[in-house]
């Protein structure tokens, strides 16, 4: 009985894994370059940052909200990390350099959460506004210029951290996959193994019931959006380490890729659903598709033409037959 319950919960992850296997098998047979360790590591490296963002967004989605400002937060955090380190002369202190950025990310998230909770407005509308505030402010204060000259502590962790040698070939591994792994474990622990995580699911499932049970919705909103803000800041800095530059408008506009990954992974717009395993699989399903198409010689723009329908098909699969026959609502 107990096992049956568990199986029910993880069904999305199992389906996703199967679909991914099928896609991977197809690309392995169709191209020679796909099924290689190098390509695999490359894939993981490229999608790790998306994975970090997805972990943050997942928490908000579970809580029954949505946020589209997190990439603006990430850009602000990147920029702050560099500017603050430079102006305070914190060139080689990793902790002191990274701290203001993380604090800013969490703070922005808290502001989002507070506005959503206290003004009682749909979260998409609030976060559209805060995104504009942050992005407009960032573009103005940075003048839209990229920064290529990073503080010293960033270079300590940028590029290749270590490498594995397999069959005589050196494969470099950067910080991004490690940070993503930590973020995933942290988020998994939070959602599945803490009381706060369970309260987030409860609030997503039935906010009114949660309120009556004495769960402090305000605190949970602050926590969820604050967590996303923190993850966004971490993701932003990881991205800066990966590409060794800070480009103010590089991230904003790709929010929906992250949302798509979380939704593919079983998170729902209505809240209370989804898990870390599914979300990570969602990220790499999209990654796999883009990577494979790329190896086929399809342009990255055109891969959106595939991704769009994939999102729609996934939505059909998760929604079809879920409504009562006399129910015509949408969620």
């Amino acid at each position: 009985m107990a096992r049956a319950g568990r199986r029910r919960r993880d069904r999305v992850a199992v389906y996703l894994a199967l679909v991914m296997l099928a896609i991977a098998a197809f690309f392995s047979l169709a191209t020679t370059t796909f099924f290689t360790l190098r390509n695999f590591l490359n894939l993981v490296e490229s999608y790790s940052v998306t994975g970090i963002f997805t972990m943050g967004l997942l928490v908000v989605l579970v809580a029954g909200g949505i946020d589209i400002s997190f990439l603006a937060t990430a850009s602000v955090a990147q920029y702050l990390a560099v500017v603050v380190s430079r102006s305070l002369g914190l060139d080689d202190s990793f902790i002191l350099g990274v701290l203001p950025a993380l604090a800013a990310g969490a703070f922005i998230g808290l502001v989002n959460g507070a506005l959503i909770h206290y003004l009682a407005v749909v979260s998409i509308i609030v976060t559209i506004s805060t995104q504009s505030v942050m992005f407009g402010g960032l573009m103005y204060s940075s003048g839209g210029r990229s920064i290529y000259n990073l503080p010293g502590w960033m270079y300590q962790f940028s590029g290749t951290l270590f490498s594995v040698t397999v069959g005589g070939q050196r494969h470099p591994i950067g910080a991004a996959p490690l940070v993503m792994a930590v973020a995933a474990v942290l988020t998994f622990a939070l959602l599945a193994h803490t009381t706060t995580g369970r309260q987030l699911y409860a609030m997503g499932g039935n906010p009114e019931a949660a309120r009556r049970l004495g769960i402090r919705l305000g605190a949970l909103h602050l926590f969820a959006y604050g967590y996303l803000g923190l993850m966004a800041a971490i993701g932003g800095i990881t991205q800066a380490l990966r590409v060794e530059e800070v480009v103010p408008n590089a991230l904003v506009g790709r929010e929906f890729d992250v949302l798509a990954a979380a939704i593919l992974g079983g998170a729902s717009f209505a809240g209370g659903r989804g898990g870390v395993a599914g979300a990570i699989l969602g990220v790499f399903l999209i990654g796999l598709l883009k990577n494979g198409l790329n190896l086929f010689g399809v342009s990255s723009y055109f891969s959106d033409v595939i991704i769009g329908p994939v999102i729609v098909i996934a939505l059909c699969a998760t929604h079809l037959g879920k409504r009562k026959e006399t129910d015509v609502g949408f969620a």
Partner: peptide, 20 residues
């Protein structure tokens, strides 16, 4: 109407597709 997907999500997919 027929599948019950919230239009925000559908239009997210449609937007990605159209841009592509």
């Amino acid at each position: 109407a027929y599948v019950g997907v919230h239009p925000t999500l559908t239009t997210l997919g449609v937007m990605t597709l159209l841009k592509g």
